[in-house]
């Protein structure tokens, strides 16, 4: 069995003295693990940094074997991120959430395209936070917990001041529809619906909302594993940057 694909390196861990086991989010084959012979060597280890764009060829005798990869580097994203605290936190959050949420060997070409585009924006401090927020929405959608932000869950199409999200159903709620329940609902900033210039405080509100669904809906479906800490570190780093102006 063999195939060739492009992918984003999600993780690499040493296997024995000279090999590494990597997990790659590939375009056609989804999250897929394999052994890289010599992956711990001085020549190959620098290539196998999370976020790297790789051209991979996977081979195994049987399909359910872990198999082995040969890798060719296409783009290294870690180098640009290492000295930038915010970018590095973002890179860690994306790779950790993909490892957390994606089932093995199941293609998600739409999410793959979104992830690749997001990681290519790494280091662009103006565009990255909003792009990341939109990517978390796409991740929830792909995992089956997408938010419905089209109409008010209470008043239907008549309401045009959508301001909240129901923490249970993930549906938008208008200000009028929320009534006395407003303080129990999650914020729905315009940037979450793709409107407006997306100032930092709106993005922070959006991350609070997506964070709720990642933590309370996605994580229990993953066997009640805790959400990766890398996501919270990114949110903290973003909050610190916002506070510094």
């Amino acid at each position: 069995m063999d195939w060739r694909d492009q992918g984003i390196l999600l993780s690499s861990r040493r296997h024995g003295e000279s090999a590494a086991i990597i997990e790659v989010f590939t375009r056609e084959h989804g999250r897929h693990a394999g052994v890289v012979r010599g992956g711990a060597s001085r020549k190959i280890a620098p290539i196998l940094q999370p976020g790297a764009q790789l051209d991979v060829t996977w081979r195994a005798r049987l399909e359910d074997h872990i198999g082995s990869y040969t890798v060719e580097p296409l783009r290294s994203r870690a180098a640009a991120a290492l000295s930038d605290r915010q970018a590095l936190a973002g890179l860690n959050a994306v790779t950790a959430l993909l490892l957390f949420a994606l089932p093995e060997r199941e293609g998600h070409p739409v999410l793959y395209a979104r992830s690749e585009a997001l990681l290519d924006l790494l280091g662009d401090q103006d565009l990255w936070p909003l792009a990341y927020l939109q990517w978390e929405l796409a991740l929830l959608e792909e995992a089956g917990f997408g938010l419905d932000l089209s109409t008010c869950a209470v008043l239907g199409h008549g309401a045009n001041d959508l301001s909240y999200v129901s923490p249970r159903s993930g549906r938008a709620v208008s200000r009028a529809g929320a009534g006395d329940w407003a303080d129990r609902l999650l914020p729905l900033p315009p940037c979450l619906m793709g409107h407006g210039p997306a100032p930092d405080h709106e993005i922070a509100e959006g991350l609070r909302t997506t964070g709720h669904f990642l933590r309370e809906h996605l994580a229990p479906a993953m066997g009640n594993k805790p959400l990766p800490e890398a996501r919270q570190r990114f949110v903290d780093a973003f909050a610190r940057r916002s506070a510094q102006g």
Partner: peptide
Amino acid sequence: NATVDGQTTAHYIAD
């Protein structure tokens, strides 16, 4: 180390 894990740790300590 100049790796993602190494520099993530460095930024955390710096904080």
